[in-house]
Design a protein around this nucleic acid. Structure first.
Lengths: 206, 206
DNA sequence: GTGCTATGTTGACGCTGTCAAGATAACATC
DNA sequence: GATGTTATCTTGACAGCGTCAACATAGCAC
């Protein structure tokens, strides 16, 4: 398939996604136009519309891939309550690495482009939610559900707050506000310490 | 000034900023076009270019206003080391309220639109940095510089990590990912607890 | 009054997402 | 094998965008 000069492309759907991922990585969402995409795939401007409802749908598919990769990272996570530090440290590093490896993809996954302006696909919603769900479950299963925090009885809250820390760090880092790229190591450790202080079970609270 | 039917507008600069703030609040950056802005101000499409170098410059000015407002919020903050909870709680609520009151403005201030894609004005950079600087100083002045955290000796790190938590929370909240608007109260408390655990000085670490 | 400068105008260019209508190929059915 | 249906791809068009160039007007200094 994918013979040049043919009227039918062969596997345009996959080719579009592939090319889109490259374009996204190199130029960001702003540089990703359907027209340019079509041109790169050697196809006319409106051909993509036979494979994706509109630009939003294509971007959602792209973000979905990202969440699937992130979900795999989540699978490997393990936080043992008796000594959460190494697991947490590995997870945080992995997360930051994931975000920094392809910032534009991360931005697309969590940015307003899809979640506010455009409407996220039902399919995207499912994957993204599943990814977070897995994080909550991991926390709970590994015995980090109830923590030293007052509201810590609810693992959902712990998950939300800790994910927010991680996420906020990534955003500040990637957009270059307040946190420099070279601070990454130090701030990463700081984030781990922050979470540990919150998550370390009840030595203090009787 | 600002007489209708006049060739010269009178105070287009201010009018543009005013109208832009409204449009931003109502429709977000995506709905804010220079052409529409000009039309609303009763002026031709290219008139704004005599008052702002380009769209990026106008957006920077808009974001700058936001940072000035946020800076005022920062002034009121007070974290006393002997009992940081009430001050911190007030600050967190204030911050979340600020973000939720005008989400599009917050997005503009911290989003990639200015910091990644467009280039932030030197003036914007200064104000934004000053705002964060004030936060760091406040933390240090109130005796929260060195904390229970291992790396807590550096107030900059504490500031970065705690701001990241706050910021991440806002992003997840505003974009509607993982955190619902109705969870705000609970998550806000959770964030306070998280920071407190990190910031409460050295009862544990000898 | 004369000229300079700030401000506002129209016209144009290339870019974008998307719709409508028509062309072509593949495939299923008779 | 012929026929019809469907998936796929094409060109043409439209409205919107940011921005540049060239021109018009008004205010202000001299």
């Amino acid at each position: 398939m994918t013979h040049p000069g043919r009227y039918h492309h062969g596997d345009l759907h996959a080719a579009l996604l592939r090319e889109a991922a490259v374009l996204l990585r190199e130029q960001g969402v702003e540089g990703l136009s359907l027209r340019r995409l079509a041109e790169r795939a050697g196809v006319s401007r409106t051909a993509p519309y036979h494979h994706f409802q509109d630009k939003n749908a294509l971007l959602c598919a792209l973000a979905e891939d990202g969440f699937r990769r992130l979900d795999r990272l989540m699978e490997d996570a393990a936080f043992q309550a008796h000594d959460p530090e190494p697991g947490l440290r590995r997870f945080v590093r992995g997360y930051l690495h994931f975000a920094c490896d392809d910032p534009e993809q991360y931005e697309l996954m969590f940015g307003r482009t899809l979640w506010k302006t455009g409407r996220p696909t039902e399919s995207l919603r499912r994957v993204a939610h599943g990814c977070f769900r897995r994080y909550v479950d991991k926390l709970e299963a590994d015995g980090l559900g109830a923590t030293a925090l007052p509201g810590g009885a609810d693992p959902l809250r712990v998950a939300q707050a800790s994910w927010a820390t991680l996420h906020g760090l990534c955003r500040l880092l990637l957009d270059g506000i307040y946190v420099d790229r070279q601070d990454m190591e130090a701030v990463s450790d700081q984030a781990v310490a922050l979470m540990l202080a919150a998550v370390r079970p009840a030595e203090r609270t009787p």
